[in-house]
Design a binder for these strands. Structure first.
Lengths: 278, 278
DNA sequence: GCGAAAAGTCCCCGATCTTGTGCATCACGC
DNA sequence: GCGTGATGCACAAGATCGGGGACTTTTCGC
């Protein structure tokens, strides 16, 4: 029988840890003096302690180890828990590798451009939203004004302040970039349903995961933001799964100078080849 | 200007988190109403928030991000921090992969043997220790009794109780297993130096990292423990760097039945090919 | 347009999660 | 009297989340 200090030296486990393992029931001393409360450990408890250390080394929590150390545990249970752990670690490794790839990509970008990236791409979910939409094929990207007019007018007709339908947005349905004959929709989120009308209709935009960037400044510089986002999608192996959206977070309607316009670009995406990331 | 809730919806960052970022100075609202203390955020703050999210996604802490977001930060500083992070993640990946390998090895072992391993190998440091040693080439493994005798006698001559020189141990110096003519030493840790004597000497055993298993039961079953340990060293790519030791934690001298003998086997080791673990 | 109810916001304290470490205080015994 | 043991509380580390009580703002009914 060893006092806790001796057992600690023997096992290279700190006294505090031994007391903690006692407290959580993982390794009770072989004997406790009822008068002094001194803990006494037996050499025969070393194998159990070593098993605890070995399982801890596999990444199992003390709680899980406690479950595994129950006597007569079916082998299948041990296998199940280790398999779970295996899957968990594999997932963690994959995630870390992806993160490493992201860090490397950013480093390379700084290297290449000599400065931090101008745009930061973030992935985020967008909730489904009920919108009033005006969709049409227009001559060019700049000629959606008439669609905005339709939407704002219709909102007014049904007692909705356009400011309460924030943010106004546009969606682009062409599968590839087009200079002319652009299939686009202007959409305004609705706090409550309204009837359809002349050239406008109510629909629910689906919820999607998007990659987004926020552009600040006049619209003629939006191209850089688009390029940055598309390049990011390429580098990080995402593919586009739906019409992209522009959200006019701060625009001409907000009494703002064009230098302070704020526009968010969203592309619905999903990972491409998740198993071939490296 | 948006109230915190609106900005939260816009950015998909929780209100709580926004308040926290304010508190730690990472993202102060563009305006705070001096009467109500309401926070008001501007759309133009979204790029900064997105940069925060992007850096967070790279695994940087909020504190580090705060350092990186200082205006006019030299590019080199950003690169340095990202490089550090890159190295850190690479290390983490490597460690996780090693752990994954350990879990897989254990699973395979259970698969193969149909039951959990009988021995758990743990790596641990052993401190240097001053010992009284009796070294000789003896006929076979079992014939070290005379060496034990020498040591115990010498201890007694200098007023030391063998019980205070715990645990007695043996070291085996042959570079490979031998059936006969075994070069071994019996050693007893010393609480204080004693003079050398007939066939015994004082020396300091070096501190080493060892792989160890604990065997419980009679000595004729020690072979299984040895095999388990050596197999583990092979599987986990460790090589032996010194004489192995047996520690007699509970043995014939402790009033014990041979079924309750407890012996620890230690092999000094170091990793073999650390870069070729997978 | 007014009052009341509902929703949003404030700040502050504490919990989370894990595996312990550090410190203070008191008891035991060689 | 010093080393060792006991107990118990606090703290750690990081990034929030939860809840409570007090205000403020918005909305809804009339």
């Amino acid at each position: 029988m060893h006092k806790i200090g001796d057992f600690s030296r023997l096992s290279q486990v700190s006294v505090k840890a031994l007391r903690y393992y006692d407290e959580i029931g993982l390794l009770k001393p072989a004997h406790i003096d009822p008068f002094t409360n001194y803990r006494y450990y037996s050499s025969e408890q070393l194998p159990r302690l070593n098993r605890i250390l070995a399982l801890k080394d596999l990444g199992l929590s003390l709680e899980q180890i406690g479950l595994l150390l129950v006597d007569e545990l079916p082998v299948a249970a041990m296998q199940a828990m280790l398999s779970d752990k295996q899957a968990e670690i594999a997932r963690a490794v994959e995630e870390q590798r992806a993160r490493l790839a992201r860090v490397e990509a950013r480093l390379r970008q700084i290297e290449r451009e000599g400065q931090p990236p101008a745009y930061d791409v973030v992935l985020k979910p967008v909730e489904p939203q009920l919108v009033l939409g005006a969709r049409d094929v227009v001559a060019c990207y700049g000629s959606g004004d008439e669609l905005f007019g339709r939407v704002v007018q219709h909102l007014g007709r049904h007692g909705l302040d356009p400011a309460s339908c924030y943010p106004l947005q546009t969606l682009y349905y062409d599968p590839e970039y087009r200079e002319s004959d652009v299939d686009m929709m202007v959409a305004a989120p609705l706090p409550r349903p309204v009837p359809d009308g002349d050239g406008v209709h109510v629909e629910e935009l689906p919820g999607v995961r998007v990659a987004s960037v926020v552009h600040q400044g006049p619209y003629d510089a939006l191209g850089g933001a688009y390029r940055a986002l598309l390049e990011w999608l390429d580098t990080h192996r995402y593919c586009i799964t739906g019409p992209n959206r522009n959200l006019y977070l701060q625009g001409p309607g907000d009494d703002a100078d064009s230098a302070t316009f704020v526009t968010e670009i969203q592309f619905p995406v999903e990972p491409r080849h998740p198993h071939a990331a490296g």
